[in-house]
Design a binder for these strands. Structure first.
Lengths: 248, 248
DNA sequence: CGCGTAGTTGATGAAAATCAAATGTGGTGG
DNA sequence: CCACCACATTTGATTTTCATCAACTACGCG
């Protein structure tokens, strides 16, 4: 059960919020004019905090660190995990642009956050975060909705971890990523898998070997195709959904 | 994998909020004067909705039902679960007095809620709930904190389901219940287990047989004692914590 | 080009599921 | 009050799935 070595935080660049908003508009799929017109309504945090860039495998914060800030992913993929004392690891989730972390409201972070890919992350100091909520009462309700859907995702993951077989877990995982990809890019059946087999295994409660065998099985039965560059094509979404079963 | 039969909703009694507040004060450990003085500050929902009583094994709502209300448990134990099409069941959580459900903010409930014991539940229609949040902006922030700790619990449960062994799962489960019990009744090492072995199994991603063997193992190694009336005594909390490992 | 790591595939083992049966327990009716 | 019944729990035997151990292959990078 390999525990990834935690590297220290090494931001490769930092921008004030105004510059970063431009970065977001340019790199994201959203037209720059829209974000420029009413950034606060689209993202209440767009004007708060700094966007920092990090190399892949960099640790943003560790389980147990003082929770002094909330983060919002601007670009790249972030991995959250928890560890058992003997090194067994559970990946709690993979975050992409728009996802938030550190909202746990506890004194310390309850999981470790690391960059799966090079990433840009907006860091909002807790004091600023609280102040913003004081100014904008509607914000708490928006966040409540966000938290609610995170909770729903967590419950789906419980069903997956507790009751699904290895192949069902993998099919579910690919379908969820497929839906995320389709949301950004409608009709797209291809998904990027920037994370390693070990990451996937630790997310699904399996081993790398079992994940690998799962991919082979799905490939052999023509439900997916493995393309170059860690890209997977969902060939038979129908059959994958049957496998994954539930509404997750 | 036995799926419990869903019985229809059969409230055995209903009280207006004012009467129910009295019931709460009398049956709970909180002095009646305190709840009587400032109920809204202690529980913003104390004056909203109706408290209904239900028999054990009654279904409150089912996965897929229109989510037209939010609930707060007043008394008794409620079980939330999700099902796979083939009947495999995952218990998402056990709720006790003070816990809320139905906050998912989706159009339909995403899990089924059933009474483990006879229970009293305050039902807050969604419209009233939204209106109350409009009136009391601070409420959303309180709920945000509630949701955050639910999310934390869900993440701990992911670690449990994905990476812990059968006995570790059981030890963790007992410790969490033990902490809950101690919170209500400081120093208490005895916990009531109103739920069946099947419920526990479906909560921990195991079978009843494995849960039973786990109890036997913990009993034989003198970490717990099984008393009459589904009561468990945590004899060696130290050793149980070692077994359960993590901070969960 | 070769080294190192990530991923795949194969053989074996262990934990938990499944199958099966015995034992307890609470509730009901005689 | 007791006997009986249905069902929950425990215990035992066997099977299955997935983890572990081991080897090989492929890919990326210096």
């Amino acid at each position: 059960m390999a525990a990834l070595l935690a590297t220290s935080v090494r931001p490769t660049a930092a921008y004030p919020a105004s510059v970063a908003a431009g970065v977001l508009a340019r790199t994201g799929g959203v037209p720059a004019t829209v974000t420029a017109l009413r950034p606060a309504e689209i993202d209440p945090f767009a004007a708060i905090g700094m966007v920092r860039r990090f190399d892949r495998d960099t640790e943003l914060f560790a389980e147990g660190n003082e929770a002094d800030a909330v983060y919002k992913v601007v670009e790249g993929t972030i991995r959250l995990h928890k560890l058992l004392p003997d090194g067994r690891r559970q990946v709690i989730g993979f975050l992409q642009a728009g996802d938030m972390m550190g909202l746990a409201m506890a004194g310390t972070y309850l999981y470790t956050a690391e960059c799966v890919t090079a990433a840009a992350v907006r860091r909002i100091p807790r004091a600023r975060f609280e102040a913003t909520m004081d100014e904008q009462p509607a914000l708490a309700r928006k966040l409540l909705t966000t938290m609610a859907s995170e909770l729903v995702a967590a419950q789906d993951q419980m069903l997956l971890l507790g009751r699904k077989t290895a192949v069902e877990k993998l099919a579910s995982f690919l379908l969820v990523l497929g839906r995320r990809a389709a949301a950004r890019n409608p009709g797209c059946r291809r998904i990027d898998l920037p994370m390693s087999r070990t990451d996937i295994a630790d997310y699904l409660g399996l081993t790398t070997e079992t994940v690998s065998r799962g991919f082979t099985k799905l490939k052999t039965s023509r439900l997916i195709r493995l393309l170059d560059g860690n890209v997977v094509e969902l060939v038979d979404t129908e059959a994958l959904t049957d496998l994954a079963d539930c509404g997750a």
